[in-house]
């Protein structure tokens, strides 16, 4: 069995990415047969990967260098970097990017801190009925998000119950959550927080994996709750927090469903919900500009990749892997 993974997996670091044909030729017939079987088993995934991910990605890259539109009134032609030049000068693109980044600045810290804080609370031995709370927090996550958004639309309406409560407590002019280009972002955050059940569960799993000996030893050393949180919980949870950060960045850059459902994809109020991915969707499907839409998709991809790489580079400083060698 040791020989089997040596074909493609166990390789010297310098040979990474190259198929080791010499190793293949040294395999026994049995090992080769097993290797072939292994490849056969993953073939469906490979086929799916190439058909639905790799080839379409390459195709979109190729599209960025032509002038493909749905109506195609002009002959299809190679246009070089024209689409990229247009992208750089497109105010709407930069506006949608700015909308996305502004919302990210608001949402990302909340999406990481709130589930973590709730998970810490639920993990505390002082909390009674933690399983019940865990279920309650997770419950919204299993509600179809579109249905959730529609419920929130009513809740946050000018005469929704949130504003009714605000009026009851003396706020004469409560915010117009869904129609004001400033208040719409807090409204979107509220909807997001409603659905953080999965984040709580992930954080809880991470917290449960922290050895209790660490806390016991620190308690003996006189550490209080805050010191334990700062010096044990957060460092030990840093891989989980980093994981949720990466997922959060990818998700927020692709933020799409809520503005599409809530505002029918119009970007209302006044363009405040014209998120980048929504703009991309409209460019592609509404404006029918296939090549330009593909160019926008590649900008999004490049941006996501760049941010992720930077975060990974920084993670070496801030993320502690207890099991790392």
């Amino acid at each position: 069995m040791d020989q089997l993974p040596s074909v493609a997996v166990t390789r010297p670091a310098g040979a990474a990415g190259r198929l080791n044909l010499r190793a293949w030729s040294k395999l026994t017939p049995l090992a080769r047969r097993e290797a072939r079987q292994g490849l056969l088993y993953i073939a469906p995934w490979l086929l799916g990967f190439f058909a639905f991910t790799a080839i379409p990605m390459v195709a979109t890259l190729a599209l960025t260098f032509v002038n493909l539109t749905l109506a195609q009134r002009e002959p299809l032609a190679f246009v070089g970097l024209d689409n990229y030049v247009r992208l750089a000068a497109d105010d709407r693109v930069w506006h949608s990017l700015s909308v996305t980044l502004r919302f990210s600045a608001l949402w990302l810290p909340i999406s990481i801190i709130v589930p973590f804080a709730i998970a810490v609370g639920l993990n505390s031995r002082h909390v009674r009925g933690a399983p019940l709370f865990r279920s309650l927090f997770f419950l919204p996550y299993v509600v179809p998000f579109v249905a959730g958004v529609l419920v929130w639309e009513q809740t946050l309406g000018d005469n929704g119950w949130i504003n009714d409560v605000l009026r009851l407590v003396g706020v004469e002019k409560p915010p117009s959550w869904l129609f004001d280009s400033t208040w719409i972002y807090p409204a979107l955050v509220m909807m997001g927080v409603w659905g953080i059940g999965a984040g709580i569960v992930i954080n809880l799993a991470g917290l449960r994996a922290i050895p209790t000996e660490l806390y016991e030893a620190s308690r003996i050393d006189g550490a209080g709750a805050w010191a334990q949180l700062r010096h044990i919980t957060i460092p030990m949870m840093s891989p989980i927090l980093f994981f949720t950060l990466i997922l959060g960045v990818v998700e927020v850059l692709q933020y799409f469903l809520v503005p599409l459902v809530l505002k029918n994809g119009t970007g209302e109020p006044a363009g405040a919900t014209l998120f980048y991915n929504l703009n991309l969707y409209r460019t592609f499907f509404t404006y029918q500009e296939l090549s330009y839409g593909a160019t926008m998709a590649w900008l999004l991809f490049a941006l996501t990749l760049a941010i992720t790489l930077v975060l990974f580079a920084l993670s070496r400083r801030y993320v502690y892997y207890a099991g790392a060698r």
Partner: peptide, 10 residues
């Protein structure tokens, strides 16, 4: 192109 966009962006 449609398929590609759906896969890569949405």
């Amino acid at each position: 192109a449609v398929l590609a966009l759906v896969v890569t962006a949405c």
